[in-house]
Simulated scan of single mutants.
Amino acid sequence: MGAKMKNILITGCSSGLGLALTNLYLEKGYKVFGISRNKPKIENENFFFKAFDLSKIDIIKKELTPFIKEINNLDTVFLNAGMLGEIKEITKLSTKEIQEVLNLNLFANKELLDILATIKVDTIVGISSGASKKGSKGWGSYSLSKSSLNMLLNLYAKEMINTKLFAIAPGVIETPMTDYIRFNIDDEIFTSAKILKDGEIQKPFEAAKRLFQALERKNKFESGSFFDVRKI
């Protein structure tokens, strides 16, 4: 394949959906560039890793611009790194706690998009959530951050006219985050936890495959739009 190998960039590549996407694209013969705090146990000559904590938003441009600009031509970027924040009533949630979630789920992606806007990128996917559209009790920080991410990608789509940008909800995935909700949250108080327990839970590799298949139909969707893989 040589020079024809396509480049993929994935944030939060060390676990969950990010790790599953990394493995899927490597299996399909892509070059994968990964950014996360911890290096996944992947031995592959087409995997290029940069260790970085994306919650350090003030130094993202300084630390990651050289790594990203060197790739220069990206087929697909997955802005996947994120956090849930604590499940609790919004009245008991401090602005500091909300800010922590916004830093990683929203502002880190703003910094990354600024870098990506300076190079050739075909498609950028922000990993969103059904929680971005539905306000459920207890999910305050997460819902605020993901609804803001949807709008952030919509706004960048107006300026990055040669790139397709999407906010995509991948469905519920079996990860430490959803395990925490399913096994530690009182579903009498937070009814959304019961819905999660009773609903469909995908293995990360299943979610990655669904996302890959959804992107094969990306030309059906307008740049800047949100969609849920379960509803297409």
Rank of each mutant, 00 (worst) to 15 (best):
T11D: 06
V229K: 10
L102K: 01
T191Y: 10
I201T: 13
E89D: 15
E43K: 13
I181W: 00
L102H: 03
L17W: 10
I173A: 00
L64M: 08
L74P: 02
F47Q: 14
M177V: 12
M177W: 02
K28I: 09
K164C: 03
D75N: 14
I10P: 01
L144A: 13
A3Y: 07
V32T: 04
K133V: 09
F48Y: 15
G130K: 00
S148H: 06
N162P: 01
S225D: 12
F190T: 09
A193Y: 00
Q202A: 08
N7L: 05
S223Y: 00
T163D: 05
M1P: 06
A167L: 05
L79D: 03
K134W: 13
I168H: 06
F227I: 04
P176I: 02
T118E: 14
F78A: 11
A117R: 07
F78Y: 15
F212H: 13
N103Y: 09
A81D: 12
F78D: 03
I173T: 09
G199I: 02
K96C: 11
S147P: 00
N219S: 14
S36C: 03
A157P: 05
M160C: 06
K146P: 00
S136T: 14
I119P: 03
F226V: 02
R182F: 01
I168E: 08
K133F: 05
G82L: 09
N154T: 14
N73E: 15
F52M: 06
K39I: 10
I189L: 12
G82M: 11
T65C: 07
N23D: 10
V229L: 11
R182G: 07
F107P: 00
I119E: 04
V121D: 01
K120E: 14
T91Q: 15
N109M: 04
V229Y: 10
D228F: 10
D186N: 12
G16E: 01
F48A: 08
D75K: 13
T118C: 04
R210M: 13
L93E: 15
S15Y: 05
F67R: 04
K220S: 08
L215Q: 10
Q213M: 08
K203H: 05
I87V: 15
K209C: 00
I127V: 14
K137V: 14
I124Y: 04
K50F: 14
Y142A: 04
I168C: 07
L116G: 01
K28F: 06
Y30E: 05
L79G: 03
L155Y: 11
L106D: 07
I42Q: 11
K62V: 10
I35V: 13
E70L: 01
F52D: 06
S136A: 12
M177T: 11
N105G: 01
E200R: 06
M5D: 08
F78N: 07
S132E: 11
G2D: 13
K137T: 14
L152M: 07
K6S: 11
S148I: 02
F67W: 04
N46P: 04
T95M: 13
G138W: 04
D186A: 06
A117V: 04
E100A: 12
L24K: 10
S141D: 05
L74R: 03
L113C: 07
I195V: 10
L64Y: 04
L79T: 03
Y142W: 03
T175Y: 02
I10G: 03
E188N: 13
I119G: 02
Y156S: 09
I42E: 13
F49C: 08
E216I: 05
A51V: 08
S14Y: 14
I168F: 10
K50C: 15
I127Q: 02
D114F: 08
S225I: 13
